[in-house]
Amino acid sequence: MDNIRIPFTHRQSSHCESGVVSNLLFHEGLDISEAMAFGVGRGLFFGYFPFIRVNGLPLTTFRCAVGGIFKQVTRRFGISVCWQKFRQPRAAMEALDRKLAEGTPVGCRTGGYWLPYFPPAFRFHFNMHNLVVYGKEGDDYLISDPVFPDPVVCPGRDLMKARFARGPLSPRGTMYYFKEVPETVDLSAAIATGIKKAAWAMLHTPGPVIGIRGIRFLANQVEKWPQKLGNRRAALYLGQLIRMQEELGTGGAGFRFMYSAFLQEASRHLNSGLLNELSARMTLVGDRWRDFALMGSRNCKNRATEMESYGAMAEILRECAEQEKSIYTQLLAVARQNEHPKIILKRRQA
């Protein structure tokens, strides 16, 4: 097979899926930053699911379901996409090769455990990783993995294994690419819709485990952990929670900082002072989330002082919930206004 190397600009980002979307758009001539892709793709979310277990510990998520950002962004921008899943690993690799031969960079969902370029300390079984394949040399694939500083090379065997990682949310060889990208996109409408959807989901999703109610629910649970589980298990629960919040490419504070960056960028585009103010408040909430993680980590190491009990941590979470509720309410109001300045983004000519 011939060597293929599609000219693809690799830009490092802090989260994999928003980074993949941002880089794929950039390749098509649309300069959308990672934070912008995250915001337009209504990536911000919260859910605490004690009944779903990851390594035997409850699942907490700070972002929307995997693939959601890509789907939302392409829908907002009116980009037609192709989205494929496979049963046969070989068929999945052949389909990838065909697209590469046509000169299309392809986004792939993979597991994190089998990718050899991952540092061993970061190899866990999680199936929500995304990357762009932009070429092939012999049996090796050229990969732009947005969470790494530079493009990487991955043997085909390992990539195949990673694309067919098993377990919860297994990727089943999922790959996606753009079929047709419009010449112009309406950025301001996309921003407004993205904000509206994220704020609505945080405020009004029914049920106790999602959004603001989810954060309060988590606070109540955290408070009970030491009695319910004993100190050792409670520390494990807490450790997992901190990892979900800070690890897994969240850009810090469970995506709150990334979202602030998005709001800041949005305020420039829409010329809205209020959005800028809300961005600053979001940063402060992010700082509180970090305080929570800091206190939590001391509890993990049994180095917490009296002031840093599980009750105190629950209080921080409640404070975050309170603050975020007021932020989202205002965001919803801003996004629902109809007189945004129109920003039309033109594709850069190749």
Binding site: N55, A121, F124, A235, L236, G239, Q240, I242, R243, E246, E247, R290, A293, L294, G296, S297, C300, K301
Partner: peptide, 15 residues
Amino acid sequence: GWAPKNIANAQAWQV
């Protein structure tokens, strides 16, 4: 890197 994150990671590896 950030200490709380490293602690949480170390804990996961310890398990």
